[in-house]
């Protein structure tokens, strides 16, 4: 099977053998794909394939092969690289790791692909980082079929009430709880959940939204933490010192 000029974003690459690279890419029609870019490094001397194959850059890839690991035939840029500066670069890497860990290979994700591109553009602008990341996380969970609904109390089988407290049960969803029974850092106020569902993550709510989505995502990561999050934590810690 040969695929020509498939739009793609590179999520991650690592060196392979002498001059090749193993590429993890995200495409609309095939979802996450692993490709071998043979001689990518070598060509870097004459051409610029290595320079083209960078994350956050819209690409057009042609590849072929029958197995899980296909071969890259050609790569060309489909636009300018999206420049993420400073902290936003780490956020971009976080998105990539999230996709790498959660996306299933070889299943189409047209809408998510478009939304990923949009998210990168938002990140490169002035938009608040937290808001951009949370919207992407919610959308990602939705597109992958994990279907997390911040407005649904799974035990009561009804909508979340603004004045009640809720906690997140892995595998189930949100369940109403008593404010005394559950420590503050693992319970969520109903009115916050309602705001999160509307996409209002700003201000004081950003911490709540982060805490909630972190719990939901952790459930699907299978126990292994995200490295980018750890790096970001070290980075923040250093800033405090």
């Amino acid at each position: 099977m040969r695929v020509n000029l498939q739009p793609a974003f590179l999520l991650h690459s690592r060196p392979y053998r002498d001059s090749s690279q193993l590429l993890e890419v995200f495409t609309p029609e095939y979802g996450r794909l692993s490709l071998v870019g043979r001689g990518v490094h070598r060509k870097a001397r004459g051409g610029s394939l290595r320079a083209t194959l960078q994350p956050f850059r819209p690409l057009l890839l042609s590849f072929s092969g029958r197995s899980e690991l296909q071969s890259l035939v050609s790569a060309e840029p489909a636009g300018l690289a999206i420049t993420l500066r400073g902290e936003r670069l780490f956020s971009g890497l976080y998105l990539n790791e999230l996709l790498l860990r959660l996306l299933h290979s070889q299943s189409p994700h047209q809408a998510l692909f478009a939304y990923y591109g949009e998210t990168l553009h938002n990140l490169s602008g002035e938009a608040a980082i937290d808001t951009v990341l949370r919207s992407f996380e919610l959308r990602l969970l939705d597109e992958l079929g994990y279907g997390f609904d911040p407005l649904w109390d799974v035990r009561a089988q009804s909508s979340v009430k603004a004045e009640a407290w809720y906690e997140y049960h892995p595998g189930l969803g949100l369940v109403e709880c008593h404010s005394q029974a559950v420590p503050e850092h693992s319970r969520f106020a109903g009115h916050d959940l309602q705001a999160i569902a509307k996409g209002q993550f700003g201000g004081a709510r950003s911490q709540v939204a982060k805490r909630l989505l972190r719990q939901v995502i952790a459930e699907h990561l299978g126990g292994r933490p995200l490295h980018t999050r750890e790096l970001f934590r070290q980075f923040r810690q250093k800033a405090v010192q």
């Binding site: 991650h12 690592r14 780490f90 890497l93 490295h227 980018t228 750890e230 790096l231 070290q234």
Partner: peptide, 10 residues
């Protein structure tokens, strides 16, 4: 270089 996805940190 820093490569968080590969677990290479500061």
């Amino acid at each position: 270089h820093l490569s968080p996805i590969d677990g290479i940190g500061p």
